[in-house]
Design a protein around this nucleic acid. Structure first.
Lengths: 143, 143
DNA sequence: TATTGTTATACTCTATAACTATA
DNA sequence: TATAGTTATAGAGTATAACAATA
């Protein structure tokens, strides 16, 4: 249709949208947003992670992180805990229900990820990740 | 930080966000949204394109297309024209101002695209696009 | 009846500024 | 003063339903 296709960014975006469409559908079936999935996964792997650290990992601003965690807490999936050594902070942990829900979601997304892996094969998959990282790191200014 | 990195979709998304951050900044300097840029580019290459066709090309729903084109028209960048053979439809064309603005934007985005190309080189760029397409097409169910 | 575009509306994601309570 | 989190708010982007005009 147009010159859009000539832009690498556009092509990367099309692939990303396509992948996420599948993942969204799986998440929807579990009544979970993608943001909730990502947060639960990171908390599972980093029990007691501070809210700000989680936000940084997810590239989500503090105010939006508050809303996301509010939802997770209201659904009984995570607990907020104020550490005694810094009463400003909030530590996040999964509840047993949160553990069960993320395990379920990981199974579903894992199945999707396998489909993508199979499309590429191990070798091409490694190549793709390497090239994507070169873009990500190459465009990120040194700090 | 987490298991997110193991997911291909997440890595594709990180690269996409990184690329679009640059493009957004360039668009911002030109007081143009990315949607406006894409629309102007497609209209430039397809003068008289119908609004619905443009929306399909951009994967934008009709009601949202209306809002986008309203803005472009209000800014004097495009004209709406009702073709005599189908009075329901709307044909879109760039105004001289629209031509000037898209030319300017294409120069700016072109410079960015070159930076990405230089990061990869011609060979790896072709490989990346091929692998992305395999994902996009492989996940898209036949119609 | 179906299609093109519009209007109204709502939901998600993202962003900034002002606030609180701690450090 | 600076930091962690919250609140309020506003802007994109996207989704559906109901509508008018036309085919």
């Amino acid at each position: 249709m147009s010159a859009l296709n000539a832009h690498i960014g556009y092509r990367v975006r099309i692939a990303q949208v396509r992948i996420f469409k599948d993942v969204y559908e799986r998440m929807e079936r579990l009544s979970m947003t993608l943001g909730a999935f990502s947060a639960l996964l990171v908390i599972r792997d980093n029990p007691g992670v501070r809210q700000g650290v989680l936000g940084a990992a997810m590239h989500i601003k503090r105010p939006n992180m508050t809303k996301l965690v509010n939802g997770l807490e209201k659904d009984g999936l995570v607990t907020r805990l104020t550490p005694p050594d810094d009463k400003r902070a909030v530590e996040l942990r999964l509840t047993p229900l949160g553990e069960a829900r993320i395990a379920e979601a990981v199974r579903s997304v894992g199945a999707h990820d396998e489909a993508v892996r199979d499309l590429l094969g191990a070798r091409d998959r490694a190549t793709l990740l390497r090239l994507l990282d070169r873009i990500t790191e190459g465009l990120t200014p040194e700090r």
